[in-house]
Simulated scan of single mutants.
Amino acid sequence: MNAAPEEITALVGREVYSSNGVFVGEIEDIQLDLDARSVTGLALAELNHELFAGEVDGSTGVVVPYRWVRAVGDVVLINDVIERYDTGDSEEEPSELAEST
């Protein structure tokens, strides 16, 4: 059965979880590259404060690179690299996780 394509704005409000099932945050906005017509990042708010303790305050969100996304459905799954962000074990540079206001 072919499902109708969804609007990109349908992602706003969806919860984001790591591939290990840890809640990361909720999508507040989408970062786009208009020239390439592609999604480049997901701006998250309502963050899991345990993951970002000491990194961002309550009024700040983060932008997760879209290449970390593994699956999109009722929720969005991202690589578990976000869980390693705080410990420094990440293969990705921590600077890739951009703060948004």
Rank of each mutant, 00 (worst) to 15 (best):
Y17N: 13
Y17M: 09
Y17V: 03
Y17L: 10
S18G: 08
S19R: 10
G21T: 03
G21M: 00
F23L: 09
F23D: 02
V24M: 00
V24S: 01
V24R: 02
V24A: 01
G25D: 00
G25K: 03
G25H: 00
E26Y: 02
E26T: 15
I27K: 00
E28C: 02
D29F: 05
D29I: 04
I30G: 06
I30P: 11
L32V: 11
L32P: 02
D33C: 08
L34N: 06
L34Y: 11
D35H: 13
D35R: 14
A36T: 06
A36K: 15
V39C: 07
T40S: 10
T40K: 07
T40P: 07
G41C: 14
G41V: 06
G41M: 12
L42Y: 05
A43F: 09
L44P: 05
L44Q: 02
A45H: 10
A45D: 08
A45F: 09
L47A: 04
L47C: 05
L47E: 01
N48V: 00
N48H: 00
H49S: 15
H49T: 15
E50K: 11
L51W: 07
L51E: 04
F52M: 01
F52Q: 01
F52D: 00
A53G: 08
A53N: 11
E55A: 14
E55Q: 14
V56N: 05
V56I: 09
D57G: 15
D57Y: 07
D57E: 15
D57A: 11
G58R: 10
S59P: 01
S59W: 07
S59R: 09
G61C: 04
V62G: 04
V62R: 05
V62T: 04
V62E: 04
V63L: 14
V63T: 14
V63S: 15
Y66W: 12
R67D: 11
R67A: 08
W68R: 06
V69N: 02
V69H: 02
V69G: 03
R70Y: 02
R70V: 05
V72M: 06
V72L: 07
G73N: 12
G73Y: 08
G73K: 06
V75R: 10
V75G: 03
V76Q: 06
N79G: 10
D80L: 06
D80A: 07
V81K: 07
V81S: 12
V81N: 08
V81W: 09
V81P: 01
V81A: 11
I82L: 05
E83K: 03
E83I: 05
D86F: 10
G88T: 01
S90I: 13
S90G: 13
S90F: 09
E91K: 04
E91W: 04
E92C: 05
E92G: 05
E93S: 15
E93L: 13
E93N: 12
E93R: 10
P94G: 08
S95N: 13
S95Q: 13
E96I: 14
E96S: 11
E96R: 14
L97T: 09
L97V: 14
L97I: 12
L97E: 05
L97F: 15
A98C: 09
